[in-house]
Design a protein around this nucleic acid. Sequence first.
DNA 1: ACCTGAACACCGTTCAAGT
DNA 2: ACCTGAACACCGTTCAAGT
Lengths: 224, 224
Amino acid sequence: MTNPQPARRRVPRNTLNRERVLGAAVDLLDHAGPDAFTMRALAQRLGVGTMAVYSHFKGKDEIIDAVRERLLAEVELPPAGSGRTPREELRELCRAVYRLLSDHPSVLHLLTVRPVHGDEGTAVVERIVGLLLATGLDRPAAARAQTALMQYTVGAALWTARGRQRAGGHEDPGAALRTRFAELPAERYPHLVDLAPELASAQDGLPQYEHGLDALLGGLLAGY
Amino acid sequence: MTNPQPARRRVPRNTLNRERVLGAAVDLLDHAGPDAFTMRALAQRLGVGTMAVYSHFKGKDEIIDAVRERLLAEVELPPAGSGRTPREELRELCRAVYRLLSDHPSVLHLLTVRPVHGDEGTAVVERIVGLLLATGLDRPAAARAQTALMQYTVGAALWTARGRQRAGGHEDPGAALRTRFAELPAERYPHLVDLAPELASAQDGLPQYEHGLDALLGGLLAGY
DNA sequence: ACCTGAACACCGTTCAAGT
DNA sequence: ACCTGAACACCGTTCAAGT
């Protein structure tokens, strides 16, 4: 909270720049959530007047775009041609995207709240499409497969974030769901009451994502 | 014995109720989008002072919950045991959920912005789990499959809504993406430039969803 | 060029008051 | 019980002014 006091020395007045603003924005988003991501809170975290930020960004929307671009660029592309099969590389690439979205739930919100304008994440898409073609898919099938993989990845990350949000703190995200389902009237919801523990176990983030991802990849690449 | 109504010529003062408020809220959300969904705008649409709504709902959050519940309850469950195979019923059920989310993009926003507390959509989940068990999946596999199907459905609907939002009006959602990809530097993004038309075609909503859904179902039910 | 405080037009909601 | 207007504490952003 308290920023490092830069001594009483005559500190250069212009200690603010785009980089510092973006860093504080990511911190604020990841730590306090989208609702607390305010221009005023951002400026306060930077130890500066609210309007100082406007000297480096046109407005909040430009900051949102920049944050999204910065985080999407952070996806670690696995080294190419490491002797694995295209399908294994695909798996790892998708997991990297999921990990990013899962580590920074704020990006999901930014993706939802504002359409993508720039070339953010383009490198990842290029790589995935290339791998899909390498497995033998024809061009329309590769395009549909790429879209389906991204759709599932975004949905799974959103689902996980929603679960964490609902659980509040550090508790097990499935716990609330288990008790909720277990307490349902068994006449109307026999399967949910019965499968409450299993459904709760399926809220475990990465393992669940991998289960669905393998099924999806299996279906998309069937026969290749 | 229906009592003869007093039939006062005088128009009843209290013409506002929860039902009317919810109807206006859905209209406002679907027509003007989440940003325009304001308590003041809602009241104005109802021809009433802003605070009148607070006589029927505790606040905006309660309206959000009620709208979500109302729309999720609208998912048309296909008639049970219509002679089709469980897999065909599963497909139709998932398509119904997708259609609802696609027709009312606002629900997606409501799902993102606020965790689910009530039993909304529980009936659909019950049905899907039952069908998955009927295909022969064991309990953990059925739970994971149910979660994966919902994750993919939410992600696909969100993707489609995002594309429509980016396209602005009634244009082809893939058009913008096609030109954007086609104009990329071909040295860095050879596949994207090459597959721009196919990737644009994959932004067509329901057909793309069905492609991914069939792949996912195929992978989840492989061997059963 | 960079930063500031006051001010404007919004927002959700509280409150005291009307019927 | 239902509805109202004024007011409060927020928000993003404009503006004129400081350095």
